[in-house]
Nucleic acid binder design. Structure first.
Length: 868
RNA sequence: GCGGGCAUGGCGGAAUCGGUAGACGCAAGGGACUUAAAAUCCCUCGGCCUUAGGCUGUCCGGGUUCGAGUCCCGGUGCCCGCACCA
């Protein structure tokens, strides 16, 4: 019987329509079922979806559909991270309004995502640039402000004088603006900040509880928060400078104090600033060293530069000695106190500096015997150092180990009132001001009399004006004729609006909470949000391992403090998926897209030629799909030619989900063959399957099929719980290989009744198991089996323990650890039974050659090892 | 510099607790069907050898163990994160 090829195009759109009409994936907040919240990081509406999206959302959809089949009330929403610079760049380049550009992109990408057949509750969709959303974000802002979580800080920014805008560090290339090419200036600008550092200890400690996060991400966050404990130590100036008489330093190595040879202060340090007022040379120096770039390479190669201020401080251990105070380019004002004591014998930077400016190098470990010197502490011991001192002598302390040296020195400093123990964090407060148009307006009004006044909630939302132009550089909100001019809400006097907008990371820091009640007047309905949160499974790229996740963790805490939420950690489970990568192709003209070439095998080598004229193409490295390398594959094309199920299934096959997956044409074809094979086998068999009446029990081959199906249910269940999609896919291939022959027989009308009934059960399980990955195909196959309900509403198959546990098993027999034979024994065979079965084997007899074995190791159900 | 990870056939990868290494897929080779092609089906597929069977094999060198891809020590190579952070 000839069967038609499966046509995904017509089948897939049909089922999507059915799901849609039945509103199968709309989730109710009052559903009594146990909740499960699965979320993929929402998308930036850049224009079109790419394969990375397909992978991300395919994974999330498998989880959503699987959990739904397991009986959970699943929340699986989608939205758009829609504010941000690209919209403004497009506006400048193409004369299109950012709003129009953004919403058009959203419309395109929504349709693309829908063509994937994702089980998303689209009724909860929103974009962060919707007034309804940023209105609530402004409410959160003023609530945070009222709780003291918002601050204002003057900080240094990269200022592009031509574009009249602030640039991020990454946008400064060789000291020039990436767009304008103008020399970037350092400007001090008042910025709005969120006080994330209020929570630094809690953000650090709670990482230990995030057991379902990748260890790697927790570590990255831990390092980012960067707690270090040390000593804040004060040095007395020999002559006070105005009202400054001491210099505060921070060190994690107070035990090296005896080796201190100079004081280094940052160019922005108050002392440096004060001296610079009367010292032109110093002033020039400070400006000059800060012109330096901030990229890794520049820092790597940057030489240490210093300026001797002429000031001296007293050495706390040796009161008759003084240390000179230098302004040094490698000291950072915003870490610690902006001042250090340099100990060249034990620090590479201090050493480089001391060599250059001929400062003393004094080692400090004389008192420790060789055994207790730790490696890292002795890096620059003699002969490089000039003198050797040890902190025990001047302090009278009795210190034997490096560990003790730190704690005892801190205690000594505290007793003598020259310093105190200090916890230092690397984490800084979060500057959220952006001098841009396409973002959430900061709801504050500047009044000459009242200062910074939050916009009352009754006056919200502060709506972005739409009548703006992008002809000139800078922030259009600043140039708008009327928008910024308002009356002060407190005193009624004429005042001006804040024209900065919020960092787009703010928008993405609480969207997961908004999804729980997206049309609520308040930012959240706390009862509903607390029921849904935390997100049980969050899935997204590793690139958000630090900032987005940290900011979201801050926001949850801040929302708890302001009564919007009662869940501190927003993401219970986190999964970071790998990228989609592809071969690159090029010739002398440049990069070539995969669609333009042909690859053939010649003498075992793959040779690429240009389709157009057969000219040779170089096959380059496998790299992340990117427009610049032209190695992108458009999801639309794939879905058009193979269908969404094939695209989804391929994205989940082969590579473990946390690793990169290589997109190959042959791989996709292989996946598509599987789709067609499933359809062909089932459609050939379906007429005869319907005629078979159920008969209980199974033996022989039918039993084998049952066992295979039940085992697969067990293992795929485990695989999906662990998000090991690639393993689940392999199990599905295996099961189909087992089912293929019986199905062919049924198709030919050859099978006996008993065999086919077991097969039908197995086939049903098979369909239900691939359904989360290939939902359209599953529904269509379900119809073939004459099912009246839908796969999408059918529960996940069960397995019978008795069928999964073998009652007879084959154990390998090793002799001296090398496998020599197999024995088949019943599962409850005793050790003695197994041993006698083993000893009766011919191979074993041959090896023993009449001798007694030294030992026989029997691991029940696993292995037998005969030691001779 | 600091911190972390990885290394298995031609390729992607399995091996969940230290117990049969290479599941499953891709690529390749051979065969069947066909006038032919596509599609499909069957077989082979780590290496070496006298092909029943044997030896060898998970980056390299040691070690622990009856038994190591898996654990420990020491290397090599690649990848990632952070970084004048005191």
């Amino acid at each position: 019987m000839a069967s038609e090829r499966y046509n995904p195009k017509t089948v897939e759109s049909k089922w999507r329509q059915v799901w849609d009409e039945k509103k199968l994936f709309e989730t109710k907040n009052d559903d009594p079922g146990e909740k499960y919240y699965v979320l993929e990081m929402f998308a930036y509406p850049s224009g079109r979806i790419h394969m990375g999206h397909v992978r991300n959302y395919a994974m999330g959809d498998v989880v959503a559909r699987y959990k739904r089949a397991k009986g959970f009330n699943v929340l699986h929403p989608m939205g758009w991270d829609a504010f941000g610079m690209p919209a403004e760049n497009a506006a400048m380049k193409n004369k299109v309004h950012p709003k129009e550009w953004t919403y058009q992109n959203i419309a395109t990408m929504r349709e693309q995502l829908k063509s994937m057949g994702l089980s998303i509750d689209w009724s909860r969709e929103f974009a962060t640039c919707d007034v309804e959303y940023y209105h609530r974000q402004q409410m959160l802002f003023v609530d945070f402000m009222a709780k003291g979580l918002v601050g204002r800080r003057v900080s240094k920014v990269n200022w592009d004088p031509e574009d009249q805008t602030v640039l991020a560090n990454e946008q400064v290339i060789d000291g020039r603006g990436w767009r304008s090419g103008a020399l970037v200036e350092q400007r001090e600008l008042a910025q709005w900040i969120f006080k994330i550092t209020n929570y630094n200890q809690d953000l650090l400690d709670s990482l230990d509880d995030l057991k379902d996060w990748p260890e790697k991400v927790r570590l990255m966050q831990k390092n980012w928060i960067g707690k270090s404990v040390g000593l804040e130590l004060s040095f007395n100036l020999t002559q006070s400078l105005g009202n400054i008489s001491t210099i505060e330093t921070f060190t994690t190595r107070p035990d090296t104090l005896a080796g201190a040879s100079f004081i280094g202060i940052a160019p922005e340090h108050p002392i440096a600033k004060q001296l610079a007022q009367t010292n032109q040379e110093l002033s020039d120096f400070c400006v000059d060293v800060r012109r330096m770039g901030t990229t890794a390479e520049e820092l790597e190669t940057a030489e240490k530069r210093g300026f001797d201020t002429g000031l001296k401080v007293q050495h706390p251990l040796y009161p008759d000695q003084t240390l000179s105070v230098w302004v040094a380019n490698f000291i950072l004002m915003d870490y610690g106190t902006g001042a250090v004591f340099g100990c060249p014998a034990h620090d590479q930077r201090d050493y480089d500096f001391a060599i250059k400016y001929e400062l003393p190098i004094i080692a400090t470990f004389e008192a420790l015997d060789e055994g207790t010197k730790s490696e890292e502490n002795t890096a620059f011991l003699p002969p490089k150092s000039e003198k050797v001192r040890w902190i025990n002598q001047p302090t009278g302390l009795d210190i034997a180990t490096g560990e003790e040296a730190i704690t005892k020195t801190i205690a000594w400093a505290e007793e003598n009132n020259i310093g105190k123990a200090k916890e230092q964090f690397r984490l800084r407060d979060w500057g959220i001001s952006r001098q841009r148009y396409w973002g959430c307006p900061i709801p504050v009004i500047h009044c000459e009399d009242c200062g910074e006044v939050p916009v009352p909630k009754s006056d919200m939302p502060v709506i972005l004006p739409e009548d703006v132009d992008f002809d000139k550089p800078g922030n259009p909100l600043d140039r708008h004729p009327t928008w910024r001019h308002v009356d002060c809400p407190a005193c009624g006097k004429k005042a001006t609006r804040e024209t900065d907008t919020m960092d787009t990371f703010v928008d993405s820091s609480w969207y997961f909470a908004r999804f729980t009640a997206p049309r609520e007047d308040n930012p959240t309905d706390p009862k509903v949000a607390n029921d849904w949160l935390a997100v049980d499974q969050y899935i997204g790229g590793i690139e958000h391992a630090i900032l987005h996740l940290l900011y979201s963790r801050f926001f949850s805490r801040a929302m708890c403090e302001t009564g919007h939420l009662n869940v501190k950690e927003p993401f219970k489970g986190l999964f970071t998926q790998g990228m989609v990568v592809h071969e690159t192709y090029k010739n002398s003209e440049g990069w070539i897209t995969p669609a333009e070439i042909k690859i053939e095998e010649e003498d075992g080598k793959r040779v690429a030629t240009l389709l157009e004229d057969g000219s040779p193409i170089i096959i380059g490295n496998i790299e992340k799909m990117s427009k610049s390398k032209k190695n992108v594959v458009d999801p639309d094309d794939i879905i058009e030619s193979y269908g969404a199920d094939t695209a989804r299934f391929f994205m989940l096959s082969d590579s473990p989900p946390e690793r990169d997956v290589i997109w190959t044409e042959s791989g996709v074809e292989g996946t598509h063959r599987f789709v067609q094979r499933v359809w062909r086998l089932l459609s050939e068999a379906h007429q005869n399957m319907k005629n078979i009446t159920a008969k209980p029990g199974a033996k022989g081959k039918a039993l084998d099929i049952s066992i295979a199906a039940h085992k697969t249910v067990k293992s795929i269940g485990e695989d999906l719980e662990n998000l090991s999609f690639n393993k689940a896919v392999a199990r599905l291939y295996e099961l189909l290989n087992t089912l293929a022959n019986p199905l062919t027989q049924i198709g030919q009308g050859k099978a006996d009744v008993e065999l086919t009934q077991a097969t039908i059960d197995a086939v049903e399980k098979f369909i239900l198991m691939f359904a989360p990955m290939m939902p359209h195909l599953a529904e269509e196959c379900w119809v073939l089996l004459d099912k009246k309900d839908m796969v999408a509403t059918t529960k996940w198959p069960d397995f019978e323990e008795s069928l999964v546990t073998e009652n007879e098993l084959t154990m390998p027999v090793q002799i001296n650890g090398k496998k020599k034979a197999d024995i088949t024994v019943s599962a409850d065979a005793s050790k003695d039974d197994i041993i006698s079965a083993t000893l009766s084997l011919d191979v074993v007899k041959k090896f023993l050659d009449g001798q007694e074995p030294k030992k026989i190791i029997v691991v029940p159900k696993r292995i037998v090892n005969v030691v001779i």
